[in-house]
């Protein structure tokens, strides 16, 4: 037996272990969601029903969409701290102009997506820190929302209301929507060839650039997609709440970042997972409110529950990877 064959045989179990660890890691988001659902089922079995899921996951659709939006900028090694106020602004547009003057409302929303794309261009061309630029933009969106809707109010267009209250047979709408969102984002970013370029622009920008792809275009597309999914998130939110408020989306900034990370995304290197992100958003949506209510924990601690889940999942991730490092 040659030395290399010996080495190969010795290495084989290692490879297998490595693969197991990778699968474990990939399953972690789904596992945490299953754990939360199991806890809810244990505390209140009646919640596990068509009606129960409809109620518990109601707000999960806009959160999942905002998380996917955030995922696109994170894939390019950026961070969007304005997505929450952006979702709020879109909500205000939906509850006012989109109902009264659909054409102007629609054009405004298209303009929003273009504004995001332009922001991507600015960040790339001037090599700006996206954190500061988007923090500044969060003021802009919030200000515009207040100008548009100084007091909470307005009403969502009827087509949006009826779309969001759609009740498909057997499977609750939020679950159908979540699967659809995850699939569309997965195919677009993970399975398409340009999706690989987009992720590559975050993973190894120099390599993508030398291979002849435009980093400028990639950045613009990533930010544009963030704007697009942000618009969808705002529309979905207003379709559920029926009226808007300038501050309605403020919590979404941190929730969306947490969702991406929970779902296995990483801050650098273009490593994100659309399916994981949607699962992460669902976990946060269920753990924050329904689980705590069933555990009779006061709503004061809702935000802490999100933080705790984030820390627990990240700790589990470290445990899984650490075993890998020891070998």
């Amino acid at each position: 037996m040659t030395a290399s064959a010996l080495a190969a045989r010795a290495a084989a179990p290692d490879v297998r272990r490595f693969k197991i660890r990778r699968i474990l890691r990939a399953l972690l988001p789904a596992f945490s969601l299953a754990l939360v659902i199991a806890a809810i089922a244990y505390l209140n079995p009646r919640a596990i029903s068509y009606f129960g899921f409809n109620l518990m996951l109601n707000l999960a659709i806009p959160i999942a969409l905002a998380t996917i939006a955030q995922m696109f900028v994170i894939a390019g090694n950026d961070l969007d701290l304005s997505i929450g106020s952006f979702v709020g602004f879109v909500g205000c547009v939906a509850a006012t102009w989109l109902r009264d003057q659909p054409l102007i409302g629609g054009l405004t929303l298209v303009g929003c997506v273009l504004a995001y794309a332009a922001l991507g261009a600015l960040v790339y061309l001037r090599n700006l820190p996206s954190i500061v630029v988007t923090l500044g933009m969060s003021f802009v969106w919030q200000g515009l929302a207040i100008l548009l809707l100084p007091k909470p109010g307005g009403r969502a267009p009827d087509w949006l209301l009826s779309f969001m209250s759609f009740k498909p047979p057997l499977v609750p709408f939020p679950i159908v929507a979540a699967i659809l969102i995850a699939l569309v984002a997965h195919i677009g970013l993970m399975r398409s060839s340009y999706g690989a370029i987009l992720r590559g622009s975050g993973g190894n920008a120099a390599a993508i650039s030398r291979a002849g792809w435009s980093l400028f275009k990639a950045k613009v597309v990533l930010f544009g997609l963030t704007g697009f999914f942000g618009v969808l998130s705002g529309l979905a939110l207003i379709g559920i709440t029926t009226s808007a408020d300038a501050n309605i989306g403020n919590g979404y900034t941190l929730l969306s970042i947490a969702g991406v990370i929970l779902g296995g995304g990483e801050f650098v290197g273009g490593r994100v997972s659309p399916i994981g992100a949607v699962i992460g958003a669902l976990t946060l949506a269920m753990a924050a409110s329904p689980l705590l209510t069933f555990m009779r924990i006061p709503p004061d601690w809702q935000v802490a529950a999100n933080g705790a889940i984030l820390i627990i999942v990240l700790a589990a991730r470290v445990l899984i990877s650490q075993r890998g490092a020891e070998r």
Partner: peptide, 28 residues
């Protein structure tokens, strides 16, 4: 100015200042 205009102006001016100051050129 109203609260809304104030927020929009603050945000835009911060973005403008950052843009004018510019990020540093990539090291490599």
């Amino acid at each position: 100015v109203s609260a809304g205009v104030r927020l929009v102006m603050t945000g835009l001016i911060i973005v403008l200042v950052i843009t004018a100051a510019g990020g540093e050129k990539a090291a490599r």
